[in-house]
Design a protein around this nucleic acid. Sequence first.
DNA 1: AATTGTATTGAACGGTGTTCAATTCTGTGT
DNA 2: ACACAGAATTGAACACCGTTCAATACAATT
Lengths: 202, 202
Amino acid sequence: MSAKRDALRTKLIDAAERRMRANGLTGLRARDITKDAGCALGGLYNAFGDLNELVLHVNARTLDHLSDKIVNAREGLAPKDALLAIALTYARFAQENRTLWDALYDHKMPDNTDIPDWFRTHQSNVMAHVVGDLAALQPDLPSKKVHIRASTYFSAVHGIVAVSLQGRFLGLPSDHLHEEIERFVGYILSGSLGASEKKSAH
Amino acid sequence: MSAKRDALRTKLIDAAERRMRANGLTGLRARDITKDAGCALGGLYNAFGDLNELVLHVNARTLDHLSDKIVNAREGLAPKDALLAIALTYARFAQENRTLWDALYDHKMPDNTDIPDWFRTHQSNVMAHVVGDLAALQPDLPSKKVHIRASTYFSAVHGIVAVSLQGRFLGLPSDHLHEEIERFVGYILSGSLGASEKKSAH
DNA sequence: AATTGTATTGAACGGTGTTCAATTCTGTGT
DNA sequence: ACACAGAATTGAACACCGTTCAATACAATT
């Protein structure tokens, strides 16, 4: 009964993704998308409640795409090497899909309604890889703490990539990005493993 | 000859800062600002070329405010302790001035005109503290590399704070933010100092 | 007081996301 | 085949945004 509707939804997501890839999130116009998708302006609000909801679907695709890249890069690697591979893959993905990646962070929910659960799932799927390798490295650490450290690790790498790419605050030159990430991850891994977790036992 | 004009400029910046503190960057309306400042709508475009230019001035103030906080926190501390103090101060500032801090990163230049030099100076002033302490820790490192590492260090901390505060990707709970930053900085400092820089000599 | 130059005004413009009465389409019963 | 009801689609209209610029108010000089 909603096959037609779903077809329109994917056509709209396709069109929005193309526009976002080319012109970024700020260059996204409802009129352009619906024209590309071959429906009337109002059709967007039939398929989705909101333009923001459509953006959310494009972002979900981007996260899945990123997740696939991480799976490939991580495959068959020991946890330490896997964590480095994830970081470098994240950086490369951001560089190669700049506008789509920007939208992941530039997009804001209207008012301050919170992010829907179905979208959080896509975010978690990406983070799960970091969680997995970190858990393998520290098997005696409670799951909750593993998640917290995974978040810290992931967001630190993200910060390096983000500031480098948008060139704020001096801006790390993009040529040195991968080099700096390698050094940085080395510090983290040696710090979090080499000295071990003697204090945390208490 | 432009005393009147400068007075209007500061009145507009004041009004814009108040509005941004209350409603964030997305809640900023030219009509609200000019009403608060007591001038006509067009007056904004007399004092500034653009609404974006006005936002830039508010952001510059925010950076100066942050820089002051860092100076106070850093005062009289050894480089290692200073770097930790800077990170924690950055996190606390972000929490206490959430909307203004968000605007530092949410604001985008129109088209893709690049950030004016006078604004970059304010950014550099913040970063200078990190650069100083990092240079003190590694006196034999070329200045250019010190800047690159400062950028890496700063942006990693920024990433942790940013992801934690906006609660994306699982989202590190804000209660654990300072704790995680302490651990994290410990890793970095022990990694970058403890093992020393034997390889970099060649 | 007249005149010139400058600063300020706010109605008007183009472009945005969103709505909803009007229209077209679709499927069913006769 | 036809009529008809319910659902899907349309696109003109709306409210609101940043920005402009001719008209106005003001200031200074002669």
